[in-house]
Design a protein around this nucleic acid. Structure first.
Lengths: 344, 344
DNA sequence: CTGTTAGCGCGTTCAC
DNA sequence: GTGAACGCGCTAACAG
């Protein structure tokens, strides 16, 4: 089990210098005579020596690692966001630790503990309990405890009573853009489908939807507002419900692109063409949205900006600099072919 | 910058015991009087103390971390595989470090060094240079150096001259199943599209394709075998080429599902219905394959088994147990609606 | 059952 | 410009 590691002592001995000198060439923190330096570098390369970052972190009290907490890396929204964030973190000298909670609060707690033990310098919270509208007391307590020791940034989430730094997509204005688009396209019967009660993103979107519809003097039919979930299956189920309706909406806003895909799939299957017979729009601009026929009109999350901002704020916090308490990242409308002008 | 960490010394002092005793209750490696134990646990909870795993790893010479090297977490094949593998690793007590190389060999080298410095116990190589058919000398050398210190498992890849433990999907038999299916459906003009020359997966699949076609007494037309890449865009481009042909194949085997999606998209756009006018099959059984209309017939990679096997072998190597040098994971045909019987 | 001590690998004083 | 010594937080070994 015990690995025989090469250490600076071995290097020092072979190069006839002290470990301290080896350390100096490693860090570059002090001057070393070129000749000595050359010799040391030579030995280092000979043995392919790499300093043990564990030891270094122990000493510095800095691990140069950040933890990511997210529900599921398999969801394109998260995989894209993670990829962008991670790349930016790497540029800033941080490596990333991914924690897929698989929507289990238990896992979430375990991972949180694990990240603390691993001495990560900060945590990016992409999803999980920060998405619940009703904050669980115990979780909030746990979160506060974590935050006492480690800087945390919430992305698109929040917790009641937890005073965290937040970076969030402007979901409200995104939905408004979508609804206004549909209204401008002459739609008067518009539905909102997918998402779950109690998940903040759903609530934010839904109320933005209702507000906009009403402000335009249109009606929000209860049967056109259908809960579901966030994946393709949810969209399929919700579409089935849509089909049962005596009076169907002429356009549907979906909580995200995956739901939109599910909706389009089932609607099409049963003979309702999108956008000819019904318009459907999504949210997120997942890469699929572009490819799924007919191409889904949606709102882009601005992954790059969202990820970079989150990392920048976290790093500022790590370095004990001031940072914006709440940053709102704008969205942009992406026009594709899943909606069209409504005409009787 | 310096964080004031709570240590076992603080706990020990407060509980009027020695650090060693605190350590004993932490590890459970020795008996402690219940009364003492209770007191210690109490103090630990009071301060919400967590042991520093960096220090522990330094001592044990084991980090309980594994590194994953992969091209891009945003590709559903990798995100699924990672998710399955990671979950299994976690069950075995290992946490995972993801390294997205973004198809850059430079990043790959950097990450490799970083993983060594971080003292990961093992590395799972999901993709990157192990997918090249022509092995670069320097990379092979670097890899061998890494493997001298850390166990490595290659998933669906290999390097000439590098004697690694390998877990791989039986791509050959997968392709054979696909081609035989098409032939049984009466197709006589079959193409193979996507993938890149010099990438082993492509070469394996392509030669399995050619072999099978020939063994059935059919012809392999050169213009029906088109290189491309591995994403949806590649599929689109390749489909455009297909459209130019005077004589088109009646069925196309794609190097993977994403390419199949791109192909179907463009073909459909230009009026060729799938499967009515042309049959298209993919590979991987990415979750999209199920949803992308008309539902793509493909070969499933058996992600669970692939991931678990890789982790099991790696962990065996870490524990210096014997392990299979090469494990082949079977595939299974997934029938959906993107191909049908050919009739003149 | 419990305390003392040493050392994992490294970097940073402080002398020289 | 270089070396000796200490300490980061933890646990195993050895006494008691």
């Amino acid at each position: 089990m015990k690995k025989e590691n090469i250490t600076i002592y071995d290097i020092a001995k072979e190069a006839n210098v002290s470990p301290a000198t080896v350390s100096r060439v490693l860090t570059g923190n002090a001057k070393v005579r070129p000749q000595t330096m050359r010799k040391i570098v030579e030995v280092i390369e000979k043995y392919n020596f790499r300093p043990n970052s564990l030891a270094r972190s122990l000493l510095y009290k800095q691990s140069k690692m950040i933890g990511f907490i997210l529900p599921d890396i398999n969801h394109p929204f998260f995989s894209t966001l993670v990829q962008k964030s991670e790349a930016h973190a790497l540029e800033l000298g941080y490596t990333s630790f991914l924690c897929n909670t698989m929507n289990s609060s238990e896992n979430e707690s375990k991972y949180l503990q694990s990240l603390i033990e691993k001495q990560v310098d900060g945590i990016i919270y992409l999803g999980g309990r920060i998405n619940d509208t009703d904050t669980d007391e115990d979780y909030a307590e746990e979160m506060k405890n974590v935050m006492k020791r480690i800087p945390v940034v919430f992305v698109n989430g929040q917790m009641a009573g937890v005073d965290a730094h937040i970076v969030r997509t402007d979901e409200e204005s995104g939905i408004i853009k979508l609804v206004e688009l549909l209204i401008n396209l002459n739609h008067k019967k518009i539905g909102f489908v997918g998402g779950l009660k109690g998940i903040s993103s759903t609530e934010v979107k839904k109320s933005a939807f209702i507000k906009t519809i009403k402000s335009k003097g249109l009606e929000v039919k209860e049967e056109w507002v259908l809960d579901g979930g966030f994946n393709i299956e949810s969209g399929e189920e919700v579409a089935a419900q849509l089909l049962y309706l005596r009076e169907r909406p002429t356009a549907v806003v979906c909580v995200n692109d995956l739901v939109a895909i599910g909706v389009i799939k089932v609607l099409t299957k049963f003979g309702l063409q999108v956008p000819e017979n019904i318009s459907v729009v999504g949210f997120d601009d997942v890469y699929l949205a572009k490819y799924y026929p007919p191409g889904i009109t949606t709102v882009s999350q601005n992954y790059d900006l969202l990820g970079q901002t989150a990392i920048n704020i976290l790093v500022d916090l790590i370095n004990e600099k001031e940072a914006e308490k709440e940053t709102v990242v704008p969205t942009s409308l992406v026009l594709r072919d899943s909606c069209k002008i409504y005409s009787e």
